[in-house]
Write a protein that binds this DNA or RNA. Sequence first.
DNA 1: TACTAATCATCAGTATACTGATTATCAACG
DNA 2: CGTTGATAATCAGTATACTGATGATTAGTA
Lengths: 162, 162
Amino acid sequence: MTELKQMPGHLIRRYQQIAVAVFHRQVDPLGLDLTPVQFAALNTLRVHKDIDQATLAGLIAYDRTTITGVIDRLTAKGLVDRKISPTDRRARVVSLTAEGEAALDRVMPAVEEAQTVMLQGLDAREQQVFMELLTKATEATNDLSRAPLIPLATPEPTEGAE
Amino acid sequence: MTELKQMPGHLIRRYQQIAVAVFHRQVDPLGLDLTPVQFAALNTLRVHKDIDQATLAGLIAYDRTTITGVIDRLTAKGLVDRKISPTDRRARVVSLTAEGEAALDRVMPAVEEAQTVMLQGLDAREQQVFMELLTKATEATNDLSRAPLIPLATPEPTEGAE
DNA sequence: TACTAATCATCAGTATACTGATTATCAACG
DNA sequence: CGTTGATAATCAGTATACTGATGATTAGTA
C-alpha cells in the first residue's frame, strides 16, 4: 500500500477538507460566521443543557484544549454563555443564549444540505452502507484519539449489550 | 438529520483526528518527527521527481498556501531540497535529498501499519467496500475543495471524456 | 486534618488549513 | 515592444488540533 491514494488516512484527510469547504459553501451565505466545530458545539448545547466544557468536549470528541478557544469565540459572538459552575468552581458551565438558539435554527437547514452534498457521489444504498462502515470504523478506533467520544453516563447500564 | 453522530461531516472530522493520532502512534517511536502531511509530500516526491510546489500541491490535494510551510519544515530538516526552477523563475522545484529518501524508507512500514490499525474495526470485505465508497465520494466532490486533487496531465487525452 | 492524586480550564508553542493580498515572473496579444 | 492577464510563491491573519505545562480546585485517604 505505497500508493497514497489507496491509504485511508490520505483519503480521510482529503474528504475532511472537502467537508469543511462544503460546510462553508452552504453556511457562509447566511452571514452567520460559523465554523463546523462551532456548529457542533451549538448543536450539542441545545440537547444537553448546562454542561461543563469537559463534558461538552467528550460529547463531540473535541480536545479539551481546543474547546477553550471555540467557546471563547462563541462567547465573543454572544451565542453562548460561560459561567463558573455552582457545584465545582474549577468547571465552566456553558449554555446557549437566545441568539445562539436563533443562529442554530437558521443554520440547521444549510448544514443538513451540506451533508447531502458531501454524499452526492453515492446512491441511497451506498450512502447507507458508507455511513454504517464509517460509524463502525470510527467506533472501533475511538480510544486511539487524544479526544475520544465520551457519551454521557447512561442512567441504566444495559447488561450484556454495550 | 439533526443528530450530530449521523452527520457524515462530523464522523469524517472524528475519523481524521483518529487517523492523525494513529499515524503518530506508529511513526513517532522511530524518532523521525514527521507529520502525515509531511509524509505525503515525501512519498509523492519519490514518485514524481523535480516537480514544483504547485504541481506537488495538486498531486496531494494540498492548498498552495499550506505547502509553503510544509516544504519550509522539510527543508529545515534536510529531507528535501528547494531551488528555483531553471525554466520558470517563479517556480520552486522540490526534490528529495538522500536523507529524505532514507527517512521515507524507514517510515514506510510504520505508515502502512497505521493504515491497518485505522481499519481494524472492519473485516476484509468491509474494508474493501469502505475504501471504494470513500474513494467514490471523494472523487465526486473533489472540485468543491479549495485544494482539489489535480493529477498530472496524461500524455494521451482520452477522446470523448470531458 | 494534612497529603496526595486527580480533574478543569487555560496557556505556550507548533503544524495544518483556510481567505485574501502582494510580489515576481511568465504568456499572450496587438 | 509594451500592456494585460494569469500564474508561482509567499505573507498576514484566523481557526482548528495537538503536546506538554501550570494554577485552581476537588476528591480520596491515611
